[in-house]
Design a protein around this nucleic acid. Sequence first.
DNA 1: TCTTGAATGAC
RNA 2: CUUGUCAUUCAAGA
Length: 273
Amino acid sequence: MVLEDVFSDENLEEAFESFADKHDSHGLDGVKLSELRAYWETNGKKIKESIFNGTYKVGAVEQRQIVNRKGKKRTISLMNSIDRFIFRALYQKMASEWEKQFSQYSYAYQNNKGVLTAVEQAAKYMEEGKDWSVELDIQNFFDNINHSIIISKLKAGIEDVRVLDLLIAYLTCTLLDDHVFHQMEQGVLQGGPLSPLLANVYMNELDHYMEKQGYSFCRFGDDINIYCSTYEEATVAFSDVTARMEKIEQLPLNHGKTGIFKGINRKYLGYRF
DNA sequence: TCTTGAATGAC
RNA sequence: CUUGUCAUUCAAGA
């Protein structure tokens, strides 16, 4: 994939259409999503030029805490509409390229996959008698993604340095935090268009490692379950994967929610077995 | 047989 | 000026 592909007419059209169903909000730049098409017609050429010659600057991002329907606190990121658009376009191209390389046992944030397919696979493992579950929970997954590690993973799969630079601009964008600007040095934006994909890219190596080891696992974002036939087998998988997670991927585990359990009657992704 | 919108669910 | 990627369900319309 090259940068030109991101800005092809077809891909930009797809990006416009993806906003059609969304809440018609103003971005931080004051541009409404419904105005984006017109905005791009007048300013797109210049913006595109600045991206291609490397002078494009991602606008500051404001993070806000919200309470969702169920009363849970969440952080969201508000950005310029034009940046949302650019990174949406980049997401589309990145996704079609990377998803081919993802493990079949990675279920989150991809077309035609989801909670149900993950739970079905988990149920299949259990029916095979693998009813010991190693449950791994990563602490603040998105926030703890290490930039130099993800950049090196991205580098391995991206030939166009201009694309890589755009991704680095996304990762290291400026946050506006209570009237103070500071640069992101760790983690991916909560609620950012590329973040779910980048999270999967980050875990891709570990997925394939687990496949190579012959583990029966399901991963949904930061939620990883490995199903084993015996407790002994589970302890081996547990120490193998936790060590790798913390040392190689530099991801802290939530030890309170991480452990080995008898699979029956456990809840996974909202379903109880 | 196709479309669109709303509500819910996971992370 | 309530974000993101998905999934499911229902309803309505032509």
